[in-house]
Amino acid sequence: MNIRPSAAIRQNYNEIAELCRKTAEPVYLTKNGEGDLVVMDMETFNRREKMLKLREELLAVEEDRLHGNEGYSVDEVAAMMRNAIQEATGRG
């Protein structure tokens, strides 16, 4: 875990930015010894956001399954994917 005082972002922006990119981990900034902000590079942030969205979608699907909602067969999903590809490429 990378922890820096908040003054470090003003004094050493490039160093902190490089640390974020190099480690793909957030840097935690403190103010008066207490946690204040979290800084991370855009690639790491976007990757985390995509993972959170996927987890939300998987959770929703699992909740539907637990409530008895029917899913789709592999053949049905394959057909839907083929149709979506055809529509997206203008062949549908």
Rank of each mutant, 00 (worst) to 15 (best):
M1P: 07
M1I: 13
N2I: 08
I3D: 01
I3S: 08
I3F: 10
R4L: 11
S6L: 10
S6I: 14
S6R: 11
S6E: 06
A7G: 03
A7M: 04
A7W: 08
A8P: 00
A8N: 08
A8S: 13
A8V: 07
I9D: 00
I9S: 00
Q11C: 03
N12W: 06
N14G: 09
E15M: 03
E15D: 09
E15H: 07
I16V: 12
I16L: 11
A17N: 06
L19Q: 10
L19D: 02
L19A: 12
C20F: 06
R21G: 06
R21F: 08
R21Y: 12
K22N: 15
T23C: 00
T23R: 03
T23M: 04
A24I: 01
A24E: 13
E25A: 13
E25H: 10
E25R: 14
P26R: 02
Y28I: 15
L29I: 10
L29W: 05
T30I: 02
K31V: 02
K31S: 08
N32P: 00
G33W: 02
G33R: 02
G33N: 00
E34S: 10
E34I: 07
G35R: 07
G35F: 10
D36C: 09
D36W: 15
L37I: 05
L37K: 15
V38A: 13
V38W: 00
V39D: 00
M40C: 10
M40T: 12
M40H: 06
M40Q: 13
M42P: 06
E43L: 08
F45W: 13
N46D: 13
N46M: 11
N46W: 02
N46V: 10
N46L: 12
N46F: 03
R47F: 12
R47A: 12
R47D: 07
R48K: 09
E49Y: 04
M51R: 15
M51S: 15
M51D: 11
L52E: 10
L52A: 14
K53P: 02
L54V: 04
L54W: 06
E56T: 10
A60K: 15
A60C: 03
A60V: 03
V61A: 11
V61W: 07
V61R: 09
E62D: 05
E62T: 04
E62I: 04
E63M: 09
E63V: 14
D64T: 01
R65Y: 15
R65S: 06
L66N: 05
H67F: 14
H67S: 08
H67T: 12
G68F: 03
E70T: 09
Y72M: 13
S73G: 07
E76P: 03
A78K: 08
A78Y: 04
A79Y: 03
A79G: 01
M80A: 04
M80N: 02
M80L: 10
M81N: 08
M81E: 13
M81P: 00
N83V: 09
N83A: 15
A84C: 05
A84F: 01
A84D: 08
I85N: 05
Q86C: 05
Q86D: 14
A88F: 15
R91P: 03
G92Y: 01
